[in-house]
Design a protein around this nucleic acid. Sequence first.
RNA 1: GGCGCUAUCGUCUAGGGGUUAGGACGGAAGAUUCUCAAUCUUCAAACCCGGGUUCGAUUCCCGGUAGCGCUACCA
Length: 541
Amino acid sequence: MSQPSSTSAVSARPRVRFAPSPTGFLHVGSARTFIFNWLYARHNRGTMILRLDDTDVERNTDASVDSIFEGLKWLNLSWDENYKQSERLDLHRKIAWTIFEKGLAYRDFTPAHTGDAERSGEQRSGEQRSGETRSGQQGTWLFNAGMPELPRAESDRRAAAGEPFALRFRVPRETGELIRFTDAVYGEQSKAAADIEDFALLRSDGMPTYHLASCADDADLRISHIIRGQDHLTNTFKHVLIFAAIAETTGAATSKAAGVAPPQFAHLPLLVAPDGTKLSKRRHGPVVSVTTYRDAGFLPEAFINFLCLLGWSPKNDREHMTLQELTDAFSLEGINRSNVVVNFKEAAASTNVVIPALSDAQGSNLLSYPEETFDPKAVWLNAEHIRALPIEDLSARLLLIVRAAGFSVTPEKMLHVTPLIRERIKLLRDVLTAADFFFVNQLPPYDPAELIPQKGDMAMALKVLTRAREVLANVEFKHDPLDQSLRAAAQELGVKAGQMFQPIRVAVCGRKNAPPLFETLEVLGREATLARVEQAIRKIQ
RNA sequence: GGCGCUAUCGUCUAGGGGUUAGGACGGAAGAUUCUCAAUCUUCAAACCCGGGUUCGAUUCCCGGUAGCGCUACCA
């Protein structure tokens, strides 16, 4: 874990951070935030920082930490520094108490609000926290500190007596002040201090809250740009207050932070589900998890490409872009302001799709989510990226999947198969259904009626296959000779080329839709081809 | 409820005081090919509503409506 440079000179190089809280898997919204931060850092030759915001002990899980790293690893985007908030609690507390000493915060001995289930969707009208506000006004929605500003001595006494308390920021409500900041995306923002409640800095167990920890770390790590979800836009007013307090206190207390300039903010439009609600694992399940995309056979570069187009535009009609092109083109100016629908299909359940050629489908989880689950644009972009990949590269990636599904295939064979299916697959896992017949010895059962050519009958199928058997026994197994001899055979038989090819295709592939015939035969080889033709003939007779 | 933010085809978006409102995905039709793809062509598809400002608003302003977010000792 490296330390940030402690030079007091403000660097021209931006320092940005991605700060997920480990309370669930890495979802696509978080991934996009990470990517935008990364792009901004790389575009400006700045520093990318990963920080785990894990101050919520109740909800944090190790599994979640693993899941986040798993997702980020797949994305294959690096970071330069790495922190955990839980290892920096001393710093947070120190800053909280400095703020307290400065008179900008106070102890609140009111028992913690226990109505935890209050949230869940329904509006709470007027918020029934009765009583007076700190400033003595009646009937406000604002948090009530429970008692009109305890005298400091009293507060000290009760604290010394061991009474639990939370530390609250004293928002300067009386002054009628307007809190303002400029957002790189949403422009000038302002909000009356009177509309901001006295938020907690420290919980009664001494743990810092998100607001405190986040700002304390952002200040300490000298984050220059905070790029995050728009759900934090309103919170930012609190953060502006905290940053101001930190600047005020550290200016006197510690020499090192003699002019902590508040960071610049850039809020990202939220990713929402087709029903308009914010993406959440709770509501939408694994379809919003990054690893689901990985397992479905998305290329990380395609997934990144897709996410970038959600709420950002290069403004030149380009859509299919490489990481480098994205990095070059990225800027905060291209970011939009309205929510973005990720057009996935919910409820497309994860029933296992059977791999035709593999009865005991080990690779079943690779096939859990049907293609329609995902945003069609993501799928299309993935196909674009697949087609843009060098054959060797694509082949290597496909081989991994094919082997994971239980087929034993050599890299050489895969290299021959890949060009035949490259334009026929949209997701990497499609290789299993598009090319399975290359990998098995025994074709799965198929309906003999499939062998019947267009405008033909079973007799024609038999005639064609019988003739094909002869031809294929002698012809050289290369595209051109196969093409010529089979066409010639069709002519002799008095059938159309298509009527000749189709029965052979079905005999060899076990289905009607498959890659081009001659290339397929070439890769398959004479032995397997003849065996399958033979089998088809027997099926008919 | 209060506060904040947002509003262009179904979706992602470009644009901007006068345009045939552009592109992409998806959809439809066609071309091509040994099937399926890929590719190419064509078509359908949008400026939330109401007031202003203006010679002229989809664009600027205000209001409404709708959606979203925040309003926790969650992040």
